[in-house]
Design a binder for these strands. Structure first.
Lengths: 339, 339
DNA sequence: ACTGCGATGATATACGAATGTCAACATAAT
DNA sequence: ATTATGTTGACATTCGTATATCATCGCAGT
């Protein structure tokens, strides 16, 4: 483990270079104000003793940390992984670091994560969804920096919202299925607890149905547990198709179960879309490459992450004080062949 | 945005509660040493004014941050996302936070990330792979805390290694393919730059081949660019199958291109494993659910993350000072039907 | 010789919490 | 009454860096 010495400080650099503490400090923060030769001496000494600035101390004084707190419900879902990737890409080039918290869709864990972000002087906070605990809202509203709520759009954003209209996306797809002539459309949705997206998608579906004068058969509205899996989609699908009066179309509000259902049909010889049509929500990389490419709602997860991070850096730079409070990244109805 | 006041300090709690600063501080750190009633007064005041302890200041004096730095090559790959998820799960329950850096497989970006981890007084550092820049090695060896290198096993670990034997995993699968009777085995590997795993897998393949007295046709050794995509796998596969003497088995050293290739065969009516066998490396959720389930090397990505994090917390607790320097999480050869 | 400027240094203070020493007081045990 | 113990407070210092003020010194332009 090499050196067992304590970590080096600016004072050590000063000693090693024979320059005063202030000059060293200036050489780092205001390189223009010291002579080129002096600067070189400082850099040489830094290199020599292996000095790494203590960013904690810097944060304490500046009350800025160059860290952005990000909360995602789960990482092992490619949607949120892509989202985090998008955030990371933007932060990377701005020399900002990402403090990542995983909430597992629990508002308590989210609150805990947000609290530590605030305690660590994070410069901004990006969270998923609009569902928060009371104490989380309190902490966030006392927080000075930019706050971005992502993945959905609501009027009551705390500060900034970056996402897309889940209600509209869901009703658009539902309307397409109706127009396409499907008679019995099943809905496989998510769980409502702590998930405003699932609620909005459900509402979008119901709105489109009633708007078209269609009643919804309660037995055709099913929800799968979180986190979603291919297996749960497969099971739901096989259950549905084994019934006396099966649906002729199934709208999955999550892509993973849709894939599970799709593959189950493929294995069982149930033809898509002839016997049953499948529509998804998410559009993962696999979806367009399936033998019968999947019709689905494309979510721009990486873009949500990027735009959220861009809002943050814009605000930190002082631009856009009031603008960009609401960023709609949109969605796309990908009409392919499965429905 | 609620309160535009500056963030609250311990002094504010002291003022609000009518207790002295030290008592408040003690109530938080050594609750046993203050009376229950006093403690309650402190908590009430904290609640009232919305005090959140400044962890930056705490870190500065304790020179511990409760943050663990983690570097992954990319997040939008389910292997690394699962890995990060595993790390996060363990850190969560230990009240540690994750500082996440994305290296994009560049040693420079990795170095930069590691440097900021050190500067932020991270308590431990977890990196991917054994390929680092010189300055990264220097910074790491001056770093006082635990360092975990993951996803592979090598003798020259800086501190702790958590992973599996890529050479052996690759040669095991190759041997299986040879024994299974495949005559012309193609290899679709990754790029070697900054990727010790790709190198080891290649070496494992070559070793098993020469051990069996089999020569390797250079035209059947192909590499796909990083990051890997389904499309690149599809293209390689279609190219291979269009040749005069196509292979009868293809060993993909990454799962995503294997899936792309698989789906291309499915669409083109190329039967698996009769016309061509496919073996993968990774075992994603999709692999066992394909119509012809895929034979592949199962990597325990989430477990690598969990174990790495567990090593870290054990060391931070002072346990295992010397033990657990090398953790082999193993792999599994999943014999299914595609080969 | 004058001012003005650029580069460097000396010294002090601040950031928010942790921590060590010592004092003040109340209550309990002797 | 004396000593011991528990609770609270006052004060000072520390962590590593940023920053403000003021002092030097050398050198160019007047």
């Amino acid at each position: 483990m090499g050196n067992s010495n304590r970590t080096k400080t600016l004072k050590d650099v000063s000693r090693a270079s024979g320059l005063s503490l202030i000059t060293v400090s200036r050489a780092l923060r205001l390189p223009e104000t010291v002579q080129a030769e002096t600067r070189a001496r400082v850099y040489r000494a830094i290199e020599e003793i292996g000095y790494v600035p203590n960013l904690t101390a810097r944060s304490l004084v500046s009350s800025r940390s160059n860290m952005i707190g990000v909360v995602v419900p789960i990482l092992s879902s490619s949607l949120f992984a892509d989202f985090a990737q998008g955030v990371a890409a933007v932060l990377q080039r701005e020399k900002l670091q990402m403090l990542l918290g995983v909430s597992e869709r629990s508002v308590e864990l989210e609150t805990e994560a947000v609290r530590t972000f605030v305690g660590r002087q994070a410069d901004a906070i990006i969270v998923t969804g609009f569902t928060h605990s009371e104490s989380c809202r309190t902490v966030l509203s006392d927080f000075g920096g930019p706050i971005v709520e992502t993945w959905n759009l609501r009027d009551d954003a705390i500060d900034i919202a970056v996402g897309y209209d889940n209600v509209k996306a869901s009703s658009d797809m539902t309307r397409y299925l109706i127009e396409k002539g499907y008679r019995e459309i099943a809905l496989v949705g998510g769980q409502f607890g702590n998930n405003d997206q699932a609620v909005d998608r459900y509402n979008g579906f119901m709105a489109a149905m009633s708007e078209a004068g269609r009643s919804v058969r309660p037995d055709l509205v099913i929800s799968v547990p979180t986190p979603t899996t291919m297996e749960s989609g497969r099971d739901v699908m096989l259950d549905l198709m084994a019934r006396r009066n099966p649906p002729d179309a199934v709208f999955f509000h999550a892509e993973i179960p849709a894939h599970g259902a799709y593959l189950a049909c493929l294995s069982q010889g149930i033809s898509i879309p002839e016997t049953v049509a499948i529509a998804g929500f998410g559009d993962l990389k696999l979806s367009p490459l399936l033998p019968v490419p999947m019709t689905t709602v494309k979510i721009k997860s990486e873009e949500i992450g990027r735009r959220a991070a861009e809002c943050v850096v814009a605000r930190l730079r002082g631009e856009d004080e009031e603008a960009g409070r609401m960023v709609d990244v949109g969605y796309e109805i990908m009409i392919r062949e499965s429905a």
